[in-house]
Simulated assay, not measured.
Amino acid sequence: MTLGEALTVARGKIDRLDARLLLEYATGCTHTDLLARPETPVIAPAWAQYLAWVERRAAGEPLAYLVGEAEFRGRIFQVSPDVLIPRPETEVLIELALARMQGLERPRIVDLGTGSGIVAISLALECPQAEVLAVDLSPAALAVARTNAGRLGARVDFRAGSWFAPLAGERFDLIVSNPPYVAAGDPHLALNGLPFEPQMALTDGADGLACIRAIVADAASCLKPAGHLLFEHGYDQGEASRNLLTAAGFQAAFTHPDLAGIDRVSGAHL
């Protein structure tokens, strides 16, 4: 079996780009190798791995879980089925957070529900003067996040627990979160590989706002004066999020869209 023949085997089963990427991961070859030397033989172990991956990808399993990593903001993060796969729309949360940290000498930031750690680690690397903490209820997710922080050289204090529980008595300049916000029974949960992702990180099992309500309700007790709260949410939750923030005593509640023009992040300050 050659590299060129291996790609042909996957034709009609999975997307051509996915087939190429899986073959590169399985064999260690490059895109240039595939183009210039398609006659290169594929050794048996790599061929077996590639075939297994093609079948799993054809069954809907996300590519990132097959190869164990995904890119976010130009960095490679390890992922597993214990954490959500990084999505580019979360970059909006990072950009808004960085803008609010400008001019602060040593801001304290906490990321609630950190998952693979993409938000906390990105902020720690891009705002190196900050003290960054990250909280998650899942020990398995925290293990992935700690591994990513170590690989990427980010200083993050990881803590286990639910939302603000591990932060008693502490105050922050900024609270950020990408909480579960998909409503139970939403048909999107059955699409685009979501059945393979951790459901507790996708849905609150209720109306999609339960976790946001909990975060907004307790955020003021962990914020410094004039501190900011920012969180990601669903496409139709901007108005509800702003109402929750205003009702909790926050000022200047807003919603910011992602690059597709979809409401993505809401926030406010004390």
Rank of each mutant, 00 (worst) to 15 (best):
A214H: 05
L63R: 01
R37N: 13
L112H: 02
A130Y: 02
A183E: 07
L191W: 03
A130T: 13
R87L: 07
R108I: 08
G193C: 10
P128T: 11
P187Q: 06
G193E: 04
F164H: 05
I212W: 00
T90C: 09
T30M: 07
A260N: 14
R159Q: 12
A210V: 13
A58K: 06
D236K: 08
P81H: 03
R155L: 10
Q251R: 14
A36K: 11
A149F: 01
L104I: 15
E39D: 14
A220M: 07
L230D: 01
A190Y: 05
T8G: 14
Q199E: 12
D258G: 11
V119I: 15
A219M: 04
S177L: 03
M200K: 10
F196E: 03
E55D: 15
G249R: 05
L244T: 08
I43G: 12
E105Y: 03
D207V: 11
C127I: 07
V42H: 01
L245H: 02
L137R: 07
P41G: 12
W163S: 05
F164G: 11
L270Q: 08
L202Y: 01
L174Y: 00
F172V: 10
M200W: 02
G234S: 09
Y50A: 08
G234P: 08
V67T: 15
F158P: 05
E5D: 14
H233G: 10
V110A: 07
T203M: 03
D82Y: 02
C211I: 08
D15L: 06
R100H: 11
E239P: 08
E131W: 02
T8R: 13
D258V: 12
E71P: 09
